[in-house]
């Protein structure tokens, strides 16, 4: 019996195996999460919103960084694109749903435009390139005449209620998860991982590496932008330092690494951890991020596979020995 459970768990934990069971689990969890606003207060809904938001961001980032090896520190650029697209498009009177789609489209286009430069860079240099890109975007938005400068843009759309936001975030989180699962079921899954593990060999086996990277990077960016567009609704005002701020990149990277890069569940574990840690340290906002940094250093050193990855490995070992 014990053996049966550990086999079941390790099967769920195997990062890239996706079966119908995964979709059922997601559906069950989503149904439970859907009911939360009926018996929880506004505070719980806000915490839930934050967990769903960060989890979705990290899961989206994970597509590029965890599965394809494109460790990007430029997530803020995509997030900001989502934020500003929502602000500008909704103020222009477009329906909200269309604005979300538009945000994803603009982000995908942006990925397409910057990819020729970025994909020439490998490994560490790619990372630095993305960091520079995000900073460049932020400074551009601050200074250019079209985006309201430092003061930003007010949204004319009515701010949604806490439970509405929660449900929207849930919908988007489920969408991101389903995207990830479908991707992992598809042939792109092998291609992405092959590019991550050894780009030269992948090419030698017929993988068009540029196209693979572009898909992963573009999809990851588009999903991040979708989450960003909801953040604009949440805030009611968009500003360069909020939308394109490094803090989003920091959140995404910490959540994904602490949870476990390249795993399906890791981003959600990380999101719960980071959000609860934030709630725990709510009295000490100034040291909150420093504590996150310390946790990050410790996780990289002692649990390089993150919380979920380490758990998975331990279970697999357990299975091998039993």
């Amino acid at each position: 019996m014990k053996n049966g459970i550990s086999i079941l768990l390790s099967r769920i934990a195997t990062p890239t195996r996706v079966g119908p069971r995964d979709f059922i689990i997601v559906a069950v969890l989503a149904a439970i999460a859907f009911a939360v606003p009926y018996f929880a207060g506004t505070y719980q809904q806000e915490v839930g919103f934050r967990i769903l938001q960060l989890g979705a961001l990290a899961a989206a980032w994970n597509i590029a960084a965890g599965y394809t090896g494109l460790v990007s520190l430029g997530s803020a650029a995509f997030f900001g694109i989502g934020v500003y697209t929502m602000a500008i498009a909704s103020n222009a009177g477009l329906p909200i749903a269309l604005c979300v789609v538009l945000a994803a489209g603009v982000a995908g286009l942006f990925a397409l435009i910057v990819s020729p430069a970025l994909f020439r860079l490998r490994g560490l240099y790619f990372t630095v390139g993305t960091l520079a890109l995000a900073e460049a975007m932020r400074i551009f938005v601050v200074n250019s005449p079209w985006f309201g400068g430092q003061a930003g843009i007010y949204l004319t759309a009515r701010a949604p209620k806490a439970y509405d936001l929660y449900w929207i975030a849930l919908l988007i989180a489920v969408f991101v998860v389903v995207c990830v699962l479908l991707l992992l079921r598809s042939r792109w899954s092998y291609r992405m991982q092959a590019v991550r593990d050894d780009e030269d060999v992948a090419s030698q086996l017929g993988v068009r590496t540029y196209r693979t990277k572009l898909w992963a990077f573009g999809l990851s960016g588009a999903l991040i932008a979708i989450v960003g567009s909801i953040q604009a609704l949440n805030q009611g005002i968009v500003q360069p330092n909020g939308g394109f701020g490094m803090s989003w990149t920091i959140d995404i990277v910490s959540v994904a690494i602490i949870g476990g890069m390249g795993t399906k569940v890791g981003p959600w574990v990380g999101a719960v951890f980071i959000v609860l840690l934030g709630e725990f340290l709510i009295q000490f906002p100034e040291i909150h991020l420093a504590v996150v940094g310390v946790v990050l250093v410790l996780v990289i050193r002692f649990m390089p596979n993150g919380i979920w990855g380490t758990l998975t490995l331990a279970l697999q070992k357990n299975r091998n020995f039993s």
Partner: peptide, 26 residues
């Protein structure tokens, strides 16, 4: 952390940057 690969070193310096920046603010 050097033995975990160059990514680990990079992300560690990223974490250290976060820590330092927030200590400065504090």
């Amino acid at each position: 952390v050097a033995k975990h690969g160059e990514e680990a070193g990079l992300l560690t310096t990223f974490a250290l940057a976060i820590i330092l920046e927030n200590l400065f603010i504090r």
